[in-house]
Write a protein that binds this DNA or RNA. Sequence first.
RNA 1: GCAGGAAUGGUGGAAUGGUAGACACGAAGGACUUAAAAUCCUUUGGCCUUUACCGGCUGUGUGGGUUCGAGUCCCACUUCCUGUACCA
Length: 920
Amino acid sequence: MEYNHREIEQRWQHYWRENEIYRAVEKPGKKKFYVLDMFPYPSGAGLHVGHPLGYIASDIYSRFKRQQGFNVLHPMGYDAYGLPAEQYAIQTGQHPEKTTVANIARYREQLDKIGFSFDWSREIRTCDPEYYKWTQWAFIRMFNSYYDLDADKAKPIENLVAHFEKQGTEGVHAACSKNLKFTAEEWKAYSEKEKAEVMMNYRIAYQGETMVNWCEALGTVLANDEVTEGVSVRGGHPVEQKVMNQWCLRVSAYAPRLLDDLEKLQWSDSLKETQRNWIGRSEGAEMRFPVVGKDFDLEIFTTRADTSFGVTFMVLAPESKYVDMVVTAEQKEAVDKYLSEVSHKTERERQIEKKVSGVFTGAYAVNPISGKEIPIWVSDYVLAGYGTGAIMAVPAHDSRDYAFARHFDLPVIPLIEGADVSEESFDAKEGKMINSANDRLDLNGLEVKEAIAKTKKFIEEAGIGRVKVNYRLRDAIFSRQRYWGEPFPVYYKDGIAHVMDESALPLMLPEVDAYLPTSTGEPPLGRAKNWKTPEGYPIELCTMPGFAGSSAYYLRYMDPRNGNALVSKEADEYWRNVDLYVGGAEHATGHLIYSRFWNKFLFDLGMVVEPEPFKKLVNQGMIQGRSNFVYRIKDTNTFVSKGLKDQYDAAPIRVDISMVSNDVLDIDRFRQWRPEFADAEFILEDGKYNCGYAVEKMSKSMYNVVNPDDIVDRYGADTLRLYEMFLGPIEQSKPWDTNGIDGANRFLKKLWGHFNKLDKGSNAPMTKEELKTMHKLIKKVTGDIENFSFNTSVSAFMVALNELTAQKSTNPEAMEIFTRLIAPFAPHIAEEFWHGLGKEGSVVDAEWPEYDEANLKEDSVKYPVSFNGKTRYMIDVPADASKSDVEAAALAAPDAAKWLGDKTPKRVIVVPGKIVNIVI
RNA sequence: GCAGGAAUGGUGGAAUGGUAGACACGAAGGACUUAAAAUCCUUUGGCCUUUACCGGCUGUGUGGGUUCGAGUCCCACUUCCUGUACCA
C-alpha cells in the first residue's frame, strides 16, 4: 500500500475538527502551559514557506507538552490593522476591512493545511470591535493614571489631584514631562483649562508637543522603532523631525522596571542586550552652569564628571528652549539663520552629511567647578530629546566635541596623562588624571573611575548639581494620522481633551468616503460624518498605531469572548502568562517593549497577576529565498551554463525557481516561460544547463517564492513539518532549498512501509535491541524538544527507523512508542498509525513515553585506545569492568605492542565509558 | 564606533573536553526496467600507499595557550552576520 498523504491528512484534519480535539478549557487543578506565536499581519501575498517555521516549532512544543499531561493553551489570531491594507485602500477605494477579511481567509486556508493544533475557537482579530474595545479601555485607564515614583507604580490620577489640593506639588514624586512647582492655593486658582494642562503633564497616556518622526510620504508620524537610518521601516520613505501635538504613552516611567525585570526572563542574551541598549541606562550627573549676566543656569547631563576641568565650551541643541534665552543681540541673526537651516534638514540628511556645523550664541557660562567662563554654542550634533538638550563639551576626551573644537578653533585641554590629543580625542575611560585641580577639588593622579566618583560627591556637596540616572528610552508616540486603526475614545470640550466613559466602548471606526487626508490636512477621520459625541463634541481624528492592538492580545486569548473585562480574574489566574513565546527578533525594540510596558501597567492596576507577559521567548530565524540565474551572452539569445560563463561576456538573468531542479535548468519550460526565450540557444556543460544561485529575501520579484500549499500538495503536511525542522537550528536564518525535501519524504514513506510490515497480532515483548533503540530515541527526542533542537530529533527518528529495519523488527509495541514520539512532528501519519494499532482516542492525547536507563546499558563497552591523545585501536570490555581491568585490556590488545614499541607507558588514563589514553 | 552572535566536506548541518563530519541532500557507480520515474545496494573531507585487503599522514577561519587529550575552554587576530548609534 502506497503512502497517500492527501487521503491521510484530510481524514485526520477532519477528525480533529469534528471532535474539537484542540479546544482548550480551563481545568482548575490541572497544570497549564501557554504556548503562543506572534500573530501574523495578514498580507495580500499570503504565506510562503518561511512563515510557518516558528508555528511548526511551537506546534511541536505544545503537542509535546500536551502529551506530557499539561493543559495547553495554543491560540492564533490576526494583527489586522496595518499600513499595507490602507495603502491598498487608497489606491483602489476598497475598504481595508474587505481586503483584510479576504487575506485572513486565505491565511486560514493555508494554515489549516499544515495541521496545526490551534484552538481556533479563541481566534481574535485586532480590528474586531469586540477586541479593540479593550485596547480603547486600556487607553482610558492610562489617561486616568499617573506614575508614582515613590511607590514605583501607576496610580489613579484622582490621588494626584487630591494631593495638589492639599499641598500643591510639594512632596509629589511623579513621572512627568516638565518639572512643575505650585502651591495648593495656586492649584485651586487655576482655570479648568490650566488644570487640564497640568494633569496632562502627569498622565500615562498624555497629549503633548513633542518632537516626532514625520513621514511625508505616509502622511503620518512614526514611533522610534518604526524608523531606521532616517527612513520608515515600512516603505523606506524619508522621515523628518517635527514638533507636533500628539498622544503619547509615558513608557519612559517604566524604564527602570523594564530593565531590571529582564533578569527574570528566559530570553536569549542577544535579545535582552538589544532591549538593554534600547532602554539605555547611563549613570552620571546633572550639573548647573550659571549663564553670565543672566539669572538662570544651563543644566547639562554628563557621564564624565571627571573631565570638568577640560570643559572649553558648551553646546545647546537647536531645539533647546535655552537658545532664545541666551542669544545676544549681535549674534541673533546668525543664530536664527542656523536654526532655520537645521530645521529644513531631514534626519536622514543630517546623518548622511555628518558635517560639523554650529554657531556661537554670543553668551558665556561659568564652569561651576573650574570657575572659568566658557562660550555657549548651538549645534545639531546635540540632541534635544536626550538628557537636557545641552552639553558641556570636553574636546580632549570626546570625539564629537573634538571635531567641533577643531572646526571652530576652540581650545583643547588634555586631562589624562600620556593622552596624545594632537590628532584625535582620547575617549577611553582609563588613565591617570592631570590638569584637574584647584583649591576646591583636586583630581590629579586619580584613576578615571575614582575621579568620576570624587567629582560626583563634590557636585552634590557643593550644591551645583546632583547624581542622576538617565534613560534613552523615550515615550511612545501614540497618534497616527491614518484611517485603518483603533479610534481614540477621546473628545474635545472647550479645547480640553476628555476620555469617554467606558460604557461608550467600543467606539466604532466610522465610514469615510476616501482614505486620504482632508483638503485642510486633517487625518482621514476628518471625512467621517457626525464624528461627534451624542452631546455634539468633536472626536479625536487620529487613530492608534499598530502596536496598540498587539500589546495585550496574549491576555485576550485567555478569555476572548468576555464582554465585561479584557480577561476575567479566573481566566487570568489560571493561564497567568505566556510560558513560551515564539516569533521574530525584529520585534525586540517595538512590540516586546510595548507589551511588557502594557502588562506592567495592568499589573499596577491589579488587573493581571504576572508582572511579565512572556516567560520564555524563542526567536526563530528567517527563511530566505534561493534565487536562480541563467547567463545570457551579450546581444544574443544564447545562454551559457554557469561553469562556462566566464569565457563569455554574459549577464545574469533571474529565472523562476520552479523551472530549476538542483540548479539544473529545465530548458523546455524556460523556452515556454516568455516568448522572447522561445528560440533561445544554450551552451551546456555535460549535457546540462547549470544555473547560478544567490540567497536573498523571498519575494515575488525575485521569482524565488515557495508556497507551502504546493509543498503540502506534493509531499504532504507531515513532510513539510519534518523538513522545515530538519533544515537546521530554529534560531538560525537559512535559505529554503526544496531539493532536500525528498529526504524527509523518503523517511515517511519508509516509516509507512515499516508500519505495514508489522506483525499486528503479536504480543511478543521487544527484543533487547528494540528496547535499546526505542529508549535511546525517547531520551534523545525528549531532551531535544526541551532544548528546541528539532533538527537533531528528526535525525534521531531517521536513525531509529534504520536500526529497526536492520533489526527486522515487526514488533507493534516498538512502533507504538515510535508513534507517540513522532506525533508532535508528523501528527497526521501518527494518528493513522495510532488508529491502525487499534488504540482508542486521538494520538494528540497519547501519553509521552518515559525511558528507562536500564534498557540503555550495554553488556560490553567499546573503548578507543589512544596514545598521546591519538586514537589507534578499539578494545571491547565487559560493561562492569573496573578501571584497572580496562587498562589491562588496553595494554594486552594485539595492537598495543605496535604502538607501544619497547617503551613503557608513563601514565594510563581511563575515562569510564569513554576512552583509554596511554601516555608514553 | 558600540553590543551580541557565527566560522566544521560540494551543500544544510551533527558532536556532556574523549573515535570529527551523525543525519540528510547532491554526486559517482551498480541492481531492477524496453525506457524513464520510483525503489534498493555501494562509495563519497583531502592527500599518500597498496593489484586488493590492510595501512599511514593531514584536517573544524588564523596565531598562541591550558590539558594525557581541544571543533569544544582561555588570550590575540581575520572575516561574515544581526542589532544599534552624533545618547554626552
